[in-house]
Design a protein around this nucleic acid. Sequence first.
DNA 1: ATTTGTGAAAAGCTTCACAGCG
DNA 2: CGCTGTGAAGCTTTTCACAAAT
Lengths: 232, 232
Amino acid sequence: MAEIPTAAISRLVTYLRILESLELQDVSRTSSNDLAERAGVTAFQVRKDLAYFGRFGTRGMGYTVPILKRELVRVLGLNRSWNVVIVGMGRLGQAIANYPGASDYQFQYVGLFDVHPDLVGQQVRGLKVDHIDTLSEFTRLNAVDMGFLAVPPERAQDAAQALADAGVKGILNFAPTVIQPRGAERAGQQEISDEWRGVIVENVDFLAGMKRLAFYILNPHLKDAPAPEEPA
Amino acid sequence: MAEIPTAAISRLVTYLRILESLELQDVSRTSSNDLAERAGVTAFQVRKDLAYFGRFGTRGMGYTVPILKRELVRVLGLNRSWNVVIVGMGRLGQAIANYPGASDYQFQYVGLFDVHPDLVGQQVRGLKVDHIDTLSEFTRLNAVDMGFLAVPPERAQDAAQALADAGVKGILNFAPTVIQPRGAERAGQQEISDEWRGVIVENVDFLAGMKRLAFYILNPHLKDAPAPEEPA
DNA sequence: ATTTGTGAAAAGCTTCACAGCG
DNA sequence: CGCTGTGAAGCTTTTCACAAAT
């Protein structure tokens, strides 16, 4: 199914960030070797990752920073705007809303939701927090592409279901729990319901990262080398 | 090098979370099939992942929830305490410090650091925020196992260096940048300095997750199936 | 001379079928 | 009879060597 490795997409995001940084420093050319060193991977890997999507370089010369950057922006789908709602406006949701960098590439927060009376009605980043029950009405009136899920884990499945029912195409799940792609009523043995068809879930789980870190501190030899060497 | 797949460790963390949840519901037995369904992987995968570390089940019977939980806790190194410092106490650092769930398994925040005069001296979760310059003195007086890095990306490499110099064994990096395992002075062509030897870095990057999500919304067929089916 | 792009080999990970045990 | 544990097969991803291009 996945003819392009998932890991390749993560690396593309890293290469793009490096290109942005090079552009800010007015560096106009780079190479697979230079990118590899900065990204902590091999030059083979960089070239293979780019080759999945096209031919962006010049043999003998390398890559032109603005061109490769533009191409990666296009490949990753960052040359369009994305309307985002955040569900869960506790400390984490607020930190996400205020984190700089999301507004690069036109990710725009268009709605903020919570259930807590203390939060509903508050202003965060110039937006009023609404009650989660108004989400489906909101999505009927506004195009929403993604939902960021920053609720406690016990509420995550229901909130994810609400987002799926509301027609979002993707969920960025910050809760430390697995989101099941199925209707809440028939969780168990089930088909994937229509609302879920095609909803993509990506997880950002800090507690899991913390536990993986603990494991690898105790078992450093099981960690794959962070910065592979280049051949001569 | 990595005889146990990195992905297996992530899944182990998921299985453990499922076992905790089952224990709270007073479920005493489970099976590779049940765990697989809840984790969104195959039963083969569950059994293989567990087999890397031992034999924890009973043939014909399945797994006893408290026993398997205890074994995974041990495997992951969660049966000891971990002293953690957070570097960067802006909104994200504060959200991390206050996020529930880290204090399970005795992850303990012992020090909080920042450079900003408005933050230094403030109390967060009962701890005073100290200036980053006092980090090395702090680590001389207190055993610190991990550092959580929640500074802006342009300060991440220096802060990571400070943590490595201070002798932490692992860094959980929340900044959207690659941490280079090398001394800051000779970044470029380099050896890995002694301070870095064995320092593990795990990344938790929400902006990268957001961009991957954008890509997979536009290219859903490239996403590997989220909930593999079981064979009859 | 240098650096990309790529088919093929190697390594790594997942799936499978069934042996092994209760 | 049921479910785990596991060697081997199958598939995916990474590494490699080198042809192609400038």
